[in-house]
Amino acid sequence: MGKKLFYFLSLFILVIVISYFTHLGILNALFPTKNLSIVNISYIFNTAFTLLFTALIIVLSKKYKDQLGFIFMAGSLIKIGTFLALNKLNNLEMSKNVFLDFFIAYVICLIFEVYYVSKILNTIK
């Protein structure tokens, strides 16, 4: 499991860094005066949550193998809810553009979460 986890972390960090700089490059080219703080917050939040959540899934995979799918769905719901709550507490406006900036990072992280959790579920007997 350690080798697979290292592979997951390496690939995840590489893809998230590339997508972050690509996202910033596109936004800077199209909207040079746009405030990019929400993009930074979004990538940091989604990356940290994905790393913590994946570690939690690994820890819980042995003991709660029958409930792992439900834990995964609850974690995804908690991630969106937490991000929206943080935005509301910080009085950040949730326009379509702000949500899109969050959603791009969210989808990239979600793809990795789904892939890795499905690999864990396939190995559990």
Score class of each variant (00 low, 15 high):
residue 37 S to N: 07
residue 18 I to N: 03
residue 14 L to K: 01
residue 19 S to F: 06
residue 26 I to G: 04
residue 19 S to K: 00
residue 41 I to P: 01
residue 33 T to R: 07
residue 16 I to S: 13
residue 12 F to H: 04
residue 22 T to G: 13
residue 40 N to P: 00
residue 25 G to M: 03
residue 35 N to S: 07
residue 13 I to T: 13
residue 28 N to F: 07
residue 15 V to N: 00
residue 28 N to I: 05
residue 38 I to T: 12
residue 32 P to W: 05
residue 25 G to I: 03
residue 36 L to E: 12
residue 26 I to E: 06
residue 24 L to N: 05
residue 25 G to A: 04
residue 17 V to W: 08
residue 9 L to N: 15
residue 18 I to E: 04
residue 40 N to W: 08
residue 32 P to C: 12
residue 27 L to V: 12
residue 21 F to K: 05
residue 16 I to Y: 06
residue 18 I to T: 05
residue 9 L to T: 08
residue 40 N to A: 15
residue 12 F to V: 10
residue 11 L to T: 09
residue 10 S to P: 07
residue 37 S to G: 09
residue 37 S to W: 09
residue 20 Y to T: 15
residue 26 I to N: 07
residue 27 L to T: 13
residue 32 P to E: 12
residue 15 V to A: 12
residue 37 S to P: 02
residue 9 L to A: 09
residue 37 S to L: 05
residue 34 K to F: 10
residue 32 P to M: 08
residue 18 I to A: 14
residue 20 Y to K: 02
residue 10 S to F: 11
residue 30 L to C: 06
residue 15 V to H: 00
residue 25 G to L: 03
residue 28 N to C: 06
residue 31 F to R: 10
residue 41 I to Q: 11
residue 40 N to F: 08
residue 33 T to W: 01
residue 32 P to V: 07
residue 17 V to L: 11
residue 15 V to S: 01
residue 21 F to V: 13
residue 34 K to G: 00
residue 15 V to G: 00
residue 41 I to H: 08
residue 36 L to P: 11
residue 29 A to Y: 14
residue 23 H to K: 01
residue 16 I to P: 01
residue 11 L to R: 09
residue 16 I to E: 15
residue 10 S to V: 10
residue 20 Y to R: 01
residue 36 L to V: 02
residue 15 V to Q: 01
residue 9 L to H: 04
residue 32 P to A: 06
residue 27 L to S: 10
residue 35 N to R: 10
residue 18 I to S: 03
residue 26 I to M: 11
residue 26 I to Q: 02
residue 17 V to R: 01
